[in-house]
Design a protein around this nucleic acid. Structure first.
Lengths: 145, 145
DNA sequence: TATCTAAATAGAAATGTTTTTTATTTAAAA
DNA sequence: TTTTAAATAAAAAACATTTCTATTTAGATA
């Protein structure tokens, strides 16, 4: 299918270093979100030397340029996820298996309207995240809801 | 008006210690969200000895019991806010002065519906936060939007 | 009011994630 | 091939948050 990470990086005006490409490959292959340290562990299979600051820096740059996204987890640690959906949308996150699924509904127009009309404020950004148990985790075991 | 924190704490089955009451008073008087360390600084004016773990523990307990709320800031640090509105709602946060205002619209019914019908998942919780510049900060200065 | 006990506390130390620093290496443009 | 700005490794630092332990205290009970 050609995830042409080399050219994506060129478009973003980032050097196409082997490690940067590897980080994108690892995330794109993963249906769940990963922590920086987990990403580093996987990189260790491919590179014998890999520093944690390099992982953090690359993830930050890639997230800033929008090609990957940050997941805000209730534990307040950083997680990253490669999302193939380029439209504006939000995520359902399974707190058990970490699967990420898209939510298409976004009531942001109404919220933006309320913020600007009622509060007379200017909305810069918003964050919506939904936590729960996904279909598969519900099936696999008894979860006391 | 009588913010009867003593009785609120009794209802929550928490000991009404002077420090716990002071934490609630500080937050209730504050229109912005505060960090644990900022709260400790203010407590130092009232108590000569006050440990940071005490502040963290109390904030955690009070947030768990729902009398104060955690604010998720983009910097991923913890902040707390005393919200007088007991209904389910969300917040607009001014990223400049940290003022917190209520947003009454919440599209959660639609989202819950989508999660449960389309994804066949179970929604446990959700987080919505809107960031921007409040009315006053917009007035006070030129912000490049 | 005095006694008692579980809860709360201070203070020090530990934890663990994320960032900074600096010297070295590398991608890719010229 | 040369050049140079960007990227890197490694060590160290920064910093928020938590754990630990001995001590104190709120408030129930006698």
């Amino acid at each position: 299918m050609g995830n042409d990470f080399y050219n994506i990086l060129k478009t973003l005006k980032l050097k196409a270093t082997p490690k940067r490409i590897a980080i994108m490959e690892i995330l794109a292959d993963e249906p769940t979100y990963l922590s920086p340290d987990e990403i580093r562990s996987r990189l260790k299979g491919r590179f014998k030397n890999i520093g944690l600051p390099t992982v953090y820096r690359n993830l930050e740059e890639l997230a800033d340029s929008g090609i990957i996204i940050k997941i805000i987890h209730p534990d307040r640690k950083l997680y990253y996820f490669y999302c193939h959906n380029r439209e504006h949308h939000h995520h359902f996150v399974c707190v058990q298996c970490r699967k990420v699924e898209d939510i298409n509904f976004c009531g942001m127009e109404e919220i933006k309207n309320e913020v600007e009309k009622n509060l007379k404020a200017h909305m810069v950004s918003h964050m919506l995240q939904v936590y729960g148990f996904c279909k598969d985790c519900l099936k696999k075991q008894t979860i006391s809801l």
